[in-house]
């Protein structure tokens, strides 16, 4: 589990230190305050070799990732100083560095190495000048405008849930995986029913023989089970989130705009379920939200978990100020003071 994060010169962050992170971390802030960038940094730290996926994971799909996307990974379009991402876990510290192309000290030898032995010269959809190498366990990602270097080995499995819904095929795979886990089917069913009592059953319908039309179907009390997409966006997203956690059992789950499609009246039940599942499966969650109700619901859900000693929730506030993005981690005392005082913890 990540206990501390440090980010320098990455996207809008000049310098950001986030200590005392918890099992569930809600990220709040105005638009363009760096919430998604924070998730991207965490993904890179956990699985550096997925750098080539970044353009699609959280942001609107724009075809080929152009060099502009990578150019702006480094703060101020790579004009600035070297970037740094680091995370402290219980027993280790992970560090990744990003350098503008002019900063080649210590990189040149390795560059020659991977140019001679390109392991993966063409990431799917990547432009021609993007090259990765895992030679000697180190990763170099060469866009037109920056270098990413550090230990390329994955530090933890990271799953991403963006604001876009998963396609139906991906959802079938996820629910299938969740059902194959010991207790997975029962856990998924129980959590879904807790949040929405209408949902009595979730299944993968194999479809007709010879046709590639399997789909996730749910029993919501109608005469037959219906495709999950017909049960509403909220149910679709909920199944997607819970099946991902149970089926994939990641170390870190990144959820962008967690409240998306979910009515405020079920937020507390969702957080109760997420808190329980995250703890049971040892998953750490970083979720962004624009919803004050969602934040209050998470707080109340953790307060209500009387069987657990620890209040395992933090709120990460990000602010855009003149000098760039700043942030801080709110502990229980501060969260309570804010909510009790009717102070908007989401920022301006």
């Amino acid at each position: 589990m990540i206990n501390e994060l440090r980010i320098q010169n990455f996207r809008g962050f000049a310098s950001l230190e986030l200590p005392d992170l918890k099992r569930v971390n809600l990220v709040v802030g105005q638009n363009n305050s760096g919430k998604t960038s924070l998730l991207e940094a965490i993904l890179l730290l956990c699985e550096p070799s997925r750098v080539g996926e970044l353009p699609w994971l959280f942001r609107a799909q724009q075809g080929k990732p152009d060099t502009w996307f990578f150019r702006w990974l480094l703060r101020d379009g790579a004009k600035g100083e070297e970037g740094l991402l680091s995370a402290k876990a219980a027993t280790a510290e992970w560090v990744l560095r990003l350098s503008p192309p002019s900063h080649q000290t210590g990189v040149v030898t390795a560059e020659q190495d991977f140019i001679q032995n390109p392991v993966n010269p063409a990431l799917p959809g990547a432009p021609d000048d993007v090259i990765t190498s895992r030679a000697r366990g180190r990763l170099f990602y060469r866009g037109a405008t920056f270098w990413l270097w550090g230990d390329a080995n994955p530090k933890g499995k990271c799953r991403v849930i963006s604001i876009q819904n998963r396609d139906a095929k991906a959802l079938v795979t996820l629910v299938g995986k969740a059902h194959r886990k010991a207790d997975g089917e029962e856990t998924l069913q129980r959590l879904l029913t807790k949040v929405d009592p209408r949902i009595k059953k979730v299944r993968v319908d194999p479809g007709e023989e010879g046709k590639d039309d399997n789909q996730v179907i749910v029993d919501i009390g109608l005469s037959e089970l219906v495709p999950v997409s017909q049960a509403g966006q909220g149910v679709y997203r909920l199944v997607s989130i819970l099946a991902d956690i149970i089926g994939e059992k990641p170390d870190v789950m990144l959820i962008d705009e967690v409240e998306n499609g979910l009515h405020h009246s079920i937020h507390e039940q969702i957080w109760t379920g997420l808190a329980e599942t995250a703890e049971k499966l040892d998953v750490q969650i970083f979720a962004t939200t624009h919803s004050e109700e969602c934040l209050h619901a998470a707080h109340n859900a953790f307060l209500a978990r009387k069987e657990y000693k620890e209040y395992d929730l933090s709120v990460i506030q990000l602010f855009r100020v003149e000098s760039g993005v700043q942030g801080r981690v709110l502990d229980r005392e501060l969260i309570e003071a804010g909510i009790g005082g009717n102070i908007d913890l989401r920022g301006l």
């Binding site: 506030q317 855009r320 700043q326 309570e336 003071a337 804010g338 005082g341």
Partner: peptide, 23 residues
């Protein structure tokens, strides 16, 4: 901003919560 009748106990935390750098 009222301190809920607990001005002596809550001032520090509510000031921390409200007085963020952007505000």
């Amino acid at each position: 901003q009222d301190l809920g009748g607990k001005g002596h106990e809550l001032l520090r935390e509510q000031a921390r919560a409200l007085l963020t750098p952007d505000r």
